[in-house]
Amino acid sequence: MSDQIQPILSVRDVAKTFTMHLRGGLRLPVVSGAAFTVGAGECVVLGGPSGVGKSSILRMVYGNYAVDGGQILIRDPKSGREADLADGDPREIIALRRDAIAYVSQFLRAIPRVPAIDVVAEPLVSRGTPVEAARARAKELLARLNLPEALFELPPATFSGGEKQRVNIARGFITDHPLLLLDEPTASLDAENRDVVCAMIEAKKAAGTAILGIFHDGEVRDRIATRIVDVSSFSARAAA
């Protein structure tokens, strides 16, 4: 079967509830029965109003949040092997992040004193790419995102919000992982750099990457979305 028939990401009947331990164990349902797929070359956007669980779903797919029920299947397009993130096996999650899932979060969590170019290069280095080759690719991406070259060798802790986000985007885009997660990647960017990121997303789609993202910018969403999944349809809060 083709990649279009067998999706890269399959979310099946996923449920999530938060337990508020500081409020006597109060249980706060987030999503119930979440189900959708993302195929190679698609950019699927999670839609719906604030508070329905879009970011929670993205974090479950990355393995940051545990799942109460259901499956989150990631398929290797080369071997056909599927792994279930919902099992919560830490070794499996680490392996999938290294080899299968790239992620651009809203905020850069950079290690202190590590230069921006090495923050970006690290995902390639961790997969065996020689350091100089990884740094060269990182330099290309940072230049494409219009980060001043004078900042490449500086730690991004003191960068502006937009500069940090460009480092974050370059880090997420540097690999050829089959699945790319995007959490408001253009929120801190000016119009010129939003256009650059949209072009980068379009290139990833053309290369067969499966993309799942959250975009509140309507123009960006209209330009890059293959389809929109309305999270309201399985929001446990909306149903409560």
Rank of each mutant, 00 (worst) to 15 (best):
R91G: 08
A116Y: 04
V220S: 08
A110D: 14
E163H: 03
A100N: 07
G128H: 08
R27V: 04
E184W: 00
G51R: 01
M60V: 02
V52L: 00
Y103D: 00
R171S: 15
E219D: 11
V14C: 07
R12Y: 03
I72T: 05
G39M: 06
V11Y: 05
L182R: 06
S10R: 14
R135Q: 13
L85R: 08
G218V: 05
P148C: 10
I8F: 05
P130H: 13
I72Y: 03
D99T: 09
A150K: 13
E132W: 14
R223C: 07
A66F: 02
M60P: 00
D89S: 09
A40M: 09
T186R: 07
R166W: 14
A240W: 00
R27G: 04
E140K: 11
V167F: 13
D183N: 03
T186Y: 15
A110M: 09
K78W: 14
P155D: 10
V229P: 04
V197R: 12
A40T: 09
Y62C: 10
A240G: 11
I228S: 06
E132T: 04
K16Q: 04
R166V: 02
R227A: 12
G39Q: 12
A238Q: 08
I201T: 07
Y65N: 09
R97L: 07
S56I: 00
G63K: 04
D195T: 14
L189S: 11
V38H: 03
